[in-house]
Amino acid sequence: MSAIAYLFNPPAVPSLPVRGRSERLPVQRLFFVGRNYHAHAVEMGRPVDKSVEVPFYFTKSPSTLVESGATVAYPPGTRDFQHEMELVLAIGAPGFRVTQADAAALVVGYACGLDMTRRDLQLAARDKGRPWDLGKDVEGSSVVSEIVPMPGRVLASGALSLRVNGQVRQQSDLGKLIWNIPELIADLSQYYHLQPGDLIFTGTPEGVGPVQPGDRIDGEIEGVGSIVLHVGAAE
């Protein structure tokens, strides 16, 4: 069988380093959970009542993925580029319509993540009932640290924090997630055939805020690791 010929070279497969391994984790899809900490939901003006609501999600292109330590240009079209620190869950086995009891079997590891957001564009779209793509699906906006292998393990607690230029902006604990990891995997798998390499950003706590060109962002999650991002000059 002859090789497929393309008009131009296709992009490389997005991937992330894995702690203790020479192989990298190929990234399939990027899922993001919206409003999964009560205090953040309140600061965004949309409190969550878990008794009557279900999780909601948005996606980003894998081409937005960048590794910890990178410098990302301040993006065009915004005056309010904001940080959101999150735990990232890496899927390592296929799953469809899994139960919460079986959800842990899909976990291959975790990482620290930043969901960088053009907040002014996101809120303008939200208030008009439009998709969030211009606010969220931003080039260089999905920042992820190395994957820490934890096959089958569910993280139920752990301190999370983020600093901008050394000043603490976000501080919380994974135990405050509204929907925990088994609940998220089970719910998302009702709508998608989850695949190895899918990443789930599990939501951000309160304290999100703007960054400026020249800023340095540092984040940590207890038991997982750390993440760094440099904000470059505006394009």
Rank of each mutant, 00 (worst) to 15 (best):
G129W: 11
K176F: 12
P210W: 03
G166P: 11
T204Q: 10
A111E: 05
Q167E: 15
G129T: 13
A186H: 07
V144P: 03
A124T: 14
G203H: 07
G203W: 03
V107N: 03
L134H: 05
T202A: 12
T204K: 08
I181K: 04
E206V: 08
H193N: 06
G209W: 00
F201K: 09
A124R: 15
Q190R: 12
V107T: 04
G197A: 00
P210A: 10
G166Y: 09
L194M: 12
A156H: 11
L174S: 10
A156N: 14
L114P: 08
P131I: 06
K136W: 05
Q167T: 06
C112E: 12
L121P: 06
L162M: 12
N180I: 00
V168L: 13
M150H: 13
D120P: 03
Y192C: 04
R126N: 15
V144L: 03
F201D: 13
P196D: 12
V108C: 13
V154A: 11
S141Y: 05
P205F: 06
S145K: 02
I178F: 11
S157A: 14
G113A: 00
P151K: 08
S161G: 13
S172P: 12
P149D: 01
A156V: 04
V164W: 04
D198R: 02
V107M: 05
L123F: 11
V168F: 09
P151V: 01
I178W: 07
S172D: 15
V154T: 14
L184N: 10
G129K: 13
E139N: 01
A111H: 10
V107W: 01
Q195C: 01
D198M: 02
V168R: 15
P151C: 03
L121C: 09
G207C: 05
R163I: 01
I185C: 03
N165D: 14
R118G: 01
S145H: 01
G209S: 04
L162V: 08
Q195K: 11
L174Y: 02
W179M: 04
S141L: 01
D187C: 01
L162H: 05
D115N: 14
P131V: 09
G113P: 04
E139P: 02
L160V: 15
Q171D: 13
L134V: 09
Y192H: 12
N180Q: 08
S145V: 00
G129F: 13
V143L: 04
G207K: 09
D115Y: 07
D187M: 00
G158C: 09
G166N: 12
R119Q: 04
Q171I: 01
F201R: 08
A156C: 02
K136L: 01
T117E: 08
A186N: 09
V148M: 13
M116I: 06
G109W: 02
C112T: 14
Y192S: 00
Q122M: 06
P205D: 10
V148L: 14
Y110R: 04
S161M: 14
W179Y: 09
G158S: 13
N180M: 00
G209H: 06
M116G: 08
G207D: 03
V108P: 02
A125M: 14
S161D: 15
R169F: 02
L162N: 09
V108W: 05
R153K: 13
R169M: 12
G109S: 00
E139F: 03
V208E: 12
E183Q: 10
V144A: 05
Q195S: 02
D133A: 14
T204E: 10
I147H: 02
S145G: 07
G197S: 07
L194E: 07
P182Y: 02
D133P: 05
